[in-house]
């Protein structure tokens, strides 16, 4: 996908890939042939620019055909660079106006409870979105309504447009903050599959009437050392030969 554009939110995508892998191939209930099946778990991508990563998961999950991969960000594609619900099967909301996802998740959580549905709402957001006030309105509300069907995933890669998130508007200490807001909070290495599986299982099976958050410390450009090493990798330009190197490194890792 990114190769077509030569640039993009590639470091975030590589960083969050493990979280999405555990979400889509361990935790979520869905029917690939019927992405709007009523009984599905809802997965909201609040961070619209992470669409490149979610498209990969939706392709692996069989919701989008692999043949559309090359159309990422191309005119009239179903895979725009910022995720939009009206464009893409399996994309639940139009994210990208950062800070909106969690509030929408609260409404969906309330709606699912009205319908007596057992489905979960997952909201994937970034550490940068912790700076948005609406996030905390929604955090308070989710606890107020005891939304035990709401699981928030925070991608903490400590990198936003202008630099490290902790230097832009520090959200630490993050886990106690969520706990103080009434949430069950876990903080894990977001690139450790085993830790993620355990955290998702805890969040899904917990008996407490509280919303759950998993703060995932991830590494930008995980798995491709020469991209990881770039100091500012919020929006990466990647040359043609670098794509080949990156793919080689990643597939080595895959077969190892």
């Amino acid at each position: 996908m990114g190769e077509v554009q030569g640039q993009g939110y590639i470091a975030q995508a590589l960083g969050i890939a493990d979280v999405l892998a555990v979400a889509y191939f361990h935790a979520l209930t869905y029917r690939p042939e019927d992405p709007h099946w009523e009984g599905r778990d809802r997965f909201l991508l609040s961070i619209g620019h992470y669409a490149i990563a979610l498209y990969a998961a939706l392709i692996e999950a069989g919701i989008i055909p692999e043949s559309e991969l090359e159309t990422y960000g191309v005119d009239d594609s179903r895979l725009p660079m910022s995720g939009m619900a009206s464009y893409t099967p399996g994309m639940e909301i139009s994210g990208g106006s950062l800070g909106q996802g969690l509030g929408i998740a609260v409404g969906m959580g309330l709606g699912l409870k009205r319908k007596k549905s057992g489905a979960f709402v997952y909201n994937l957001m970034s550490d940068g979105e912790l700076g948005e006030g609406a996030t905390w309105e929604a955090a308070m509300s989710a606890a107020h309504w005891k939304l035990d069907n709401l699981i928030c995933l925070v991608d903490f890669n400590n990198q936003q447009a202008d630099g490290p998130s902790t230097q832009m508007l520090c959200s630490e200490p993050l886990q106690p903050k969520w706990e103080a807001f009434g949430w069950h909070a876990q903080r894990v290495d977001g690139n450790d599959i085993k830790a993620l599986v355990a955290a998702f299982d805890t969040a899904r099976t917990l008996a407490e009437p509280r919303p759950r958050v998993i703060i995932c410390d991830t590494r930008m450009a995980m798995g491709v050392p020469f991209l990881q090493a770039r100091e500012r990798n919020h929006f990466l330009r990647v040359e043609a030969d670098e794509w080949q190197q990156a793919l080689a490194v990643l597939s080595e890792g895959r077969h190892a």
Partner: peptide
């Protein structure tokens, strides 16, 4: 009836979520 508190951005975000689940807020 849903009292969302003094939080208008949440109010309309949550209304969007309710509408997504088939309700008319």
């Amino acid at each position: 009836f849903y009292q969302m508190g003094m939080a208008e951005q949440l109010l309309f975000g949550a209304a969007a979520g309710m509408a997504r689940e088939g309700f008319t807020p």
